[in-house]
């Protein structure tokens, strides 16, 4: 990954960390998009879980 290091442009969107799901708009437009698959999936998103190798731990 090679992000620009010295440029300090303003983020184009407000940081998403500030968004509150509780204050979301009334409708959930995405759910009505044609072709949307009604797959209800919840999965941990943690790169470490996937890549940790047992040896890493043993070595130190």
């Amino acid at each position: 990954m090679n992000p620009p290091k010295n440029d300090k442009p303003e983020p184009s969107n407000p940081p998403s960390a500030d968004r509150e799901p509780a204050a979301a708009p009334d409708a959930a437009p995405d759910a009505k998009k044609p072709g949307m698959k009604y797959v209800f999936k919840i999965a941990p998103a943690d790169p470490k879980r996937n890549s940790i190798d047992f040896e890493d731990v043993a070595d130190k």
Partner: peptide, 18 residues
């Protein structure tokens, strides 16, 4: 904790607004 949820699950969560 971080999770990845599908759009349909996210849509439900968004609708849980009390």
């Amino acid at each position: 904790e971080l999770h990845c949820i599908s759009p349909a699950a996210a849509a439900l969560l968004l609708r849980c607004d009390g």
